[in-house]
């Protein structure tokens, strides 16, 4: 279960670090460096409830299930790229920046639009729309029922 929650890019980062320290290190330098640092993988931090922050490996089983379900639900919400055609959505009210051409957006069932990164970070803490406070899961279920 714990493995599902690791962020997918941690492996890539460790590979990059490995290649940096590769052939350019001279034997003299490596002698001064001492033993290599212990293998460290940055552990992603999750927020099982709004004011709680915990590394992935310290979550209770219940919290892990909640977060896994949450990740699944978020992935069901439509995304898109800002192309300037929408007259309604102009700025992301989480970061308060205007949408720029090419920005990744996510659309909530209540029709509010945010930067994908901004809203995903919020939804992992609280599953309501930050603008209208509509619970996102309730709205998701209604869209499934009507379609």
């Amino acid at each position: 279960m714990g493995n599902c929650l690791k962020s997918p890019n941690t492996d890539d980062i460790s590979l990059l670090r490995g290649s940096d320290a590769g052939p350019e290190v001279s034997s003299e330098q490596s002698a001064n460096m001492g033993p290599p640092p212990p293998y460290q993988e940055s552990i992603p931090i999750y927020h099982p409830s709004p004011n709680v922050s915990r590394p992935a490996n310290q979550l209770t089983e219940e919290e892990q299930i909640k977060i896994a379900q949450r990740l699944g639900l978020i992935n069901h919400l439509p995304t898109g790229v800002f192309d300037g055609t929408s007259k309604k959505a102009k700025e992301c009210c989480i970061c308060m920046e205007e949408f720029l051409l090419g920005d990744m957006l996510r659309f909530l069932p209540c029709m509010h639009t945010y930067h994908k990164d901004c809203i995903d970070d919020w939804l992992m803490r609280s599953f309501i729309c930050p603008s209208c406070l509509e619970p996102v899961d309730a709205a998701l279920l209604t869209t499934y029922e009507t379609s």
């Binding site: 004011n51 009210c93 989480i94 919020w122 609280s126 309501i128 729309c129 930050p130 603008s131």
Partner: peptide, 8 residues
């Protein structure tokens, strides 16, 4: 507290 929302 718990009723905070990011758009506030």
């Amino acid at each position: 507290k718990d009723q905070w929302a990011a758009a506030m």
